[in-house]
Amino acid sequence: MTLSDIVGKPLAMALIALLVCGLAYPLFVTLVAGVAFPFQASGSLVTSGNAVVGSYLVAQNFSEAVFFHPNPSNYSASGIDPTITLADAYSQIPRISNASGLSRSLLYGIVDNATSRTEFLFGTSYVNVVSINMYLIRRYPMVYGRYASG
């Protein structure tokens, strides 16, 4: 076994692999993703006017009575789970209806439209809190106008 077998070849292989897999690959994926899926690639950001007000994928503090509230942050493993169960969403409807003046049946319809299931056909039914609250803000400016900036 020569010195080249012990140092040269494995080191050169590692350096080339670093350039190809550690730089060229993620940069190429970043480039293509940025062109093909710019919204998702930058973090599914929620904008209001010119301002970034959050991400559709990350829970934020919707504490006011007119909004659907996310789970307390220590309920999930991530601490930023934007989803709640359908039952949880239903349980919040009376409060939101009282505070916003939107009818309960209207809110039930909105929740049902926003519901997905963890195994598509079965499994836990859940609602994304950020998506549904942003929908309310944009659909009902008379009620939610002061939360829409810009």
């Binding site: 994926v29 690639a41 930058s42 991400s55 939360y147 900036s149």
Partner: peptide
């Protein structure tokens, strides 16, 4: 996400 832009600071609804 797949971006080299830095972390994003958002001003939340609340």
């Amino acid at each position: 996400p797949q971006t080299l832009g830095g972390y994003v600071t958002a001003s939340t609804i609340g």
